[in-house]
Design a protein around this nucleic acid. Structure first.
Length: 503
RNA sequence: GGCGACGUCGCCAAGUGGCAAGGCAGAGGCCUGCAAAGCCUUUAUCCCCGGUUCGAAUCCGGGCGUCGCCUCCA
């Protein structure tokens, strides 16, 4: 079975054959660090985190390089607004970016060079382009000549003449062609600057991507990723720079993720309709946010809303349900029956088959251009089978003899989620998050006078079990109502009652 | 205006030639002291019109609608 990926260059799914067997070299455009990243930015980084994790899981040795663009017009603008230096702004948001990635459980890149650390290489690339007749200097600025590169437009499917007739590009008489773009800019007063053969200045277009990818990965590397709004002009220019400078093929597979939308409109900082990743993660656990994103294919647009996130939270609980039930069953031998039933063998056969099928089908789905939505459907199917086995079927069996099978089922649910980086949390409760009112309840019903949240809840559970055993339903129900009002969930299962918070 | 993507159940969403996954929400049933959880059942002539094919959500043509890019943008 081979992996197939959608290549923007050819607009079709292609068999994935890396340049070296068993090894994948990938590059994903990182952020320009002038602000916190928003949840739309995060979607793209998450997409390529999944792709990276999956390829690793499938046995490839993945080298993952991501730049940080820490010199740029927007950073300079932001610095001016805040009365800081550009370097200070960049440093702050580089740090924030890394923290946010960590909070989203995104694996760290193998290498993450800063643009400002690769200035000499960028200058060298500009020199190479000038020497090859692909760039020219005007008064300390250097421009790339789009007409000098025959392949210009091949990634985005555009034609230079069509683009010029669109003519929303600034007309600058110093350029030989309106579409020519700046590789090096003369520094204005107060701007960051580095010495160069064309005077003091700074990099223009995203040379850092061209330079870093060549330096860290070599050409052509396997996968270049980014969001679809980067196809033109960002990646088109990057491709032109690199191929014109080196004369080699730049990238084997161009992969682009779909945009996150709000009210059917692209989420973007310029439209002002964005939510910061860090704010979303304050309201929703990381696994829920990841699950939410993965329920849609990475190339499709995805509508962002808290309703959708709430639904994903419910779906997440559905997945963790049987895993939690199994843990409880292991400890308490709940769902253990007096004797084996006549149909137990058929149940076991069916679950065992479901487990094997799920493993195969997950790989099939993911091999097909990283279809996480399809892969999750497989997981949900297994969740249903496992639930049925526990609650309708033999459970753990008469003497726990079905525990190994249930463990295998649990593993078959957990492994795909691990591949997708969705952490399984069976104990979602942090004591500090309990509402303070729970102590009053515990005092009223259980005589508990301590200050430890878990103890208070446990005392309530025991007190309620006593009341229930006395069939004093009025009190038992009142306790449940009051707990639910505080945000707790009370479930009376065959092995006793469970009180959880935050579900 | 040019280039590109998309339109599948109430909502979200897989599926790119062979009987339409999955999640959320709803209805009925089972289980339960009542709930919750869980299980079972239940709802799709796949935007419209033509065409190709034994067979199309899937391919082709034409509409209608939505979104993205063409300026910084994940």
């Amino acid at each position: 079975m081979t992996i197939r990926v959608y290549n923007t260059m050819t607009r079709s799914k292609e068999e994935f054959v890396p340049r070296e067997p068993e090894k994948v070299a990938m590059y994903v455009c990182g952020p320009t660090v002038y602000n916190h990243i928003h949840i739309g930015n995060a979607r793209t980084f998450l997409t390529f985190d999944i792709i990276r994790r999956y390829l690793s899981w499938r046995g490839f040795d993945v080298t993952f390089v991501q730049n940080v663009t820490d010199v740029d017009d927007k950073i300079i603008k932001r610095a001016a607004e805040e009365g800081l230096s550009a370097a200070e702004v960049a440093e702050t948001y580089t740090r924030e970016f890394r923290l946010a990635m960590e909070a989203l459980d995104i694996l760290r890149p193998s290498r993450q060079p800063l643009a400002t650390e690769t200035i000499p290489q960028m200058i060298h690339m500009v020199e190479r382009l000038i020497a090859g007749g692909h760039a020219y200097e005007v008064d300390g600025d250097v421009y790339f000549s789009v007409r000098s590169f025959a392949g210009y437009g091949k990634l985005s499917g555009r034609d230079i003449d069509d683009l010029e007739s669109g003519a929303r590009v600034d007309v600058d008489e110093r350029k030989q062609d309106p579409l020519d773009f700046a590789l090096w800019k003369t520094a204005k007063p107060g701007e960051p600057r580095w010495p160069s053969p064309w005077g003091e200045g700074r990099p223009g277009w995203h040379l850092e991507c061209s330079v870093m990818s060549e330096e860290e990965l070599g050409l052509p590397f396997d996968i270049h990723g980014g969001a679809s709004d980067l196809i033109f002009p960002h990646h088109e220019n990057e491709l032109a720079q690199s191929e014109a400078a080196t004369g080699e093929m730049f990238v084997k597979y161009w992969m682009h993720g779909g945009l996150l939308q709000v009210n059917a409109e692209k989420m973007s900082k310029s439209l002002g309709n964005f939510m910061l990743l860090k704010d979303v993660l304050e309201a929703y656990p990381t696994p829920v946010v990841r699950l939410f994103m993965m329920q849609t294919h990475y190339r499709s647009p995805l509508e962002f809303s808290t309703d959708r996130l709430d639904e994903a939270a419910t779906a997440y609980e559905r997945i963790t349900g049987p895993l939690r039930d199994l843990e409880v069953a292991k400890r308490s031998r709940a769902r253990e029956r007096a004797e084996a039933g006549a149909g137990d063998g058929a149940w076991a056969t069916r679950l065992a088959k479901a487990v094997e099928d799920a493993k195969v089908r997950f790989v099939e789905e993911m091999d097909d251009d990283f279809n996480t939505a399809g892969g999750l459907a497989v997981v949900f199917g297994l969740v249903r089978e496992m639930n049925a086995f526990i609650w309708e079927g033999p459970g753990v069996g008469a003497h726990g003899e079905h525990l190994p099978l249930l463990e295998r089922a649990a593993t078959a649910i957990k492994e795909p989620l691990e591949v997708l980086g969705i952490e399984i949390t069976l104990q979602p409760v942090r004591v500090s998050e309990y509402p303070a009112e729970v102590f009053q309840l515990a005092a009223d019903y259980a005589g508990y006078t301590g200050v430890v949240g878990t103890e208070a809840v446990d005392a309530l559970r025991k007190a309620r079990d006593v009341v229930r055993s006395e069939k004093n339903w009025a009190v038992a129900d009142a306790m449940r109502d009051r707990l639910q009002a505080l945000g707790f969930t009370v479930e009376d299962k065959p092995d006793g009652s469970h009180i959880t918070y935050g579900r």
